[in-house]
C-alpha cells in the first residue's frame, strides 16, 4: 500500500551505503520506507492523547491562567509568565539545583545500572534474588521509598546510628535538613531508585549478546575487565544511549522524592525546576507560570532530544 509513496523516492540511505547489495533496489526501498507505517498507530494515538495536552501546555505558558480563569477563555500575555517566573528569583537557583540533581542521578543511575547488570548477568540464585529485590524497590511508589529513606537518614535513623556508633562523626549527619547535604541526599536516593530500571534493561541487552563472541574473546585470552570494556560496553552502546536519554529525562521531571523527603527545603535548597513548576501550578494555582516553567524544562530537553536523534543517526549510518 505504500508503493506509490516510496517507489518514487529511492532511499537516500541506499545510495549512500555502497556496502549494501543493490540487487533489489526497488523492492528494498519500498520495504524500507513502508516500515514507517508500523509507527502509524503510535503516531495517531499520541497525536490525540499526548500532543493535545502538550499544545495546551504551550498555550497555557503564554496565557494568564489561574484557578479563576482556568475554565474560561485564556488571556494571551506573551512572555509574561516566563519573565514572572524568572524575576521571582526562584528560577535561577532552581535551574542550578536541577543541573546538579540531573548529573548525579544520571551518572550514578547509568554506571550503577550497568555495574549491577554485569554483576547480575550470572544465573546464580544470588543474582536472581538481588534482582528480585531491586525490582521490588522499583515497583514501590516514591511515597514508600522516600519515607523509608527519610527514616533511615534521620537523626535517629539507622544510618546515623551506625555513623555515630562507629565514631565516624560525633553528632548525627544532617542529611536532609542541611543545605549542603539535602540536595545530594535526595539525588542519591533518587539514583538508588532508578538503578534497578537501568540494570534490568542493561541486563536484557547483555543477555542478548551472542555467546560465541565471548568464547572467541576468551580463547584470545581476554580477561574479564577487557571483556567488559571491549565487548559488553560496545554491545550495549545503543541501549546506553537510550537509557542515558530516559534517565536524564526522568531526572529532569522527577519531583516525587523531593516532595516526600524535603518539600524543596530547607528553605528553597532543594527546589528543582519540576518541583518549582509543581509549586507554581498546584500550590499557588498559577497554572500559566507553572506551565512556563515546565516549558523551559521541555525546551532544555529538546536540545538533548536533537543531540540524541542526530547522534543515533550518525552512529547507525556507520554500523
Amino acid at each position: 500500500m505504500s508503493a506509490d509513496l516510496t517507489a518514487a523516492r529511492p532511499s537516500r540511505r541506499l545510495s549512500a551505503s555502497p556496502g549494501h547489495t543493490r540487487r533489489f533496489p526497488r523492492r528494498r526501498s519500498l520495504s524500507r520506507r513502508g516500515k514507517l507505517l508500523f509507527a502509524l498507530p503510535a503516531g495517531v494515538f499520541l497525536l490525540i492523547f499526548s500532543f493535545f495536552p502538550l499544545a495546551q501546555l504551550g498555550r497555557m505558558s503564554v496565557s494568564d491562567v489561574s484557578a479563576r480563569t482556568l475554565n474560561s477563555p485564556w488571556e494571551f500575555v506573551g512572555a509574561d509568565n516566563f519573565v514572572g517566573s524568572a524575576t521571582q528569583g526562584s528560577l535561577v537557583p532552581a535551574f542550578g539545583n536541577t543541573v546538579v540533581f540531573v548529573l548525579i542521578v544520571t551518572v550514578i543511575g547509568l554506571i550503577g545500572g550497568l555495574a549491577a547488570a554485569i554483576l547480575l548477568s550470572t544465573s546464580t540464585w544470588l543474582s536472581a534474588f538481588v534482582l528480585g529485590l531491586m525490582v521490588f524497590i522499583w515497583a514501590l511508589p516514591p511515597v514508600v521509598n522516600g519515607s523509608v529513606w527519610k527514616f533511615l537518614l534521620g537523626d535517629a535513623g539507622l544510618i546515623n546510628s551506625i555513623i555515630t556508633g562507629i565514631g565516624l562523626s560525633p553528632t548525627a549527619v544532617p542529611f536532609l535538613y542541611d543545605e549542603r547535604f539535602a540536595l545530594l541526599s535526595v539525588a542519591i536516593v533518587n539514583s538508588w531508585a532508578v538503578v534497578p530500571f537501568n540494570a534490568l534493561v542493561f541486563r536484557a541487552a547483555i543477555l542478548g549478546i551472542p555467546g560465541e563472541t565471548f568464547e572467541a574473546a576468551r580463547i584470545d585470552g581476554a580477561n574479564r575487565w577487557q571483556e567488559i570494556w571491549h565487548m559488553i560496553v560496545p554491545a550495549v552502546r545503543p541501549t546506553t544511549l537510550v537509557l542515558a536519554v530516559l534517565t536524564i529525562v526522568y531526572a529532569f521531571r522527577s519531583f516525587d522524592f523531593i516532595f516526600v523527603m524535603t518539600y524543596g527545603g530547607p528553605g528553597v535548597a532543594t527546589n528543582t525546576l519540576p518541583f518549582l513548576s509543581y509549586l507554581q501550578a498546584f500550590v499557588r494555582f498559577d497554572f500559566g507560570m507553572g506551565a512556563a516553567t515546565a516549558v523551559i524544562s521541555v525546551l532544555l530537553v529538546l536540545v538533548l532530544a536533537v543531540i540524541y536523534a542526530r547522534s543515533v543517526r550518525s552512529e547507525e549510518a556507520h554500523s
Binding site: 532511499s11 537516500r12 540511505r13 524500507r32 520506507r33 516500515k35 514507517l36 509507527a39 503516531g43 499520541l46 499526548s50 500532543f51 495536552p53 502538550l54 495546551q56 501546555l57 497555557m60 536519554v245 530516559l246 529525562v249 529532569f252 521531571r253 519540576p274 513548576s277 509543581y278 501550578a281 498546584f282 506551565a291 515546565a294 524544562s297 521541555v298 530537553v301 529538546l302 538533548l304 532530544a305 536533537v306 540524541y308 536523534a309 542526530r310 543515533v312 543517526r313 547507525e316 549510518a317
Partner: peptide, 23 residues
C-alpha cells in the same frame, strides 16, 4: 527506517517523555 522522519519522531518521543504528567 533511516530518514528525517525518524529523527523527528525520536526527538518528539523524547519531548513527550518530558512533559510533566500533571500537565
Amino acid at each position: 527506517v533511516d530518514s528525517r522522519i525518524t529523527t523527528i519522531g525520536l526527538g518528539l518521543l523524547i519531548v513527550l517523555q518530558m512533559v510533566p504528567q500533571t500537565a
